[in-house]
Amino acid sequence: MVKPGDGYKDIPIGGLILDAGNAKEYKTGGWRTKKPILDKEKCINCHLCWAFCPDISILSEDGVVSDQIDYDHCKGCGICANECPVNAIEMVKE
């Protein structure tokens, strides 16, 4: 696994990424200026936010949308809040 600061002798040639599924290791949460907060009181569990999230950051466990959002990877794009039919997701400034 390539780490920030690695030298040219230590990284794969040609920009190849040799570790499969490594995007999970790349934390993009720092890009966020606003973060989604899910109000479980309003949520109707339709899963639209879960389906639309481009970063797989809305989590669903046993068929139930969780209010524990993956903030390590959520970029704060706001698609979830935009798609929610009952306005259960609010974008809050970081």
Partner: peptide
Amino acid sequence: IAIGPLDLQDFYFEH
């Protein structure tokens, strides 16, 4: 593996 990914300020120079 992934071939041809984005390679910005952090590693392009090393490549």
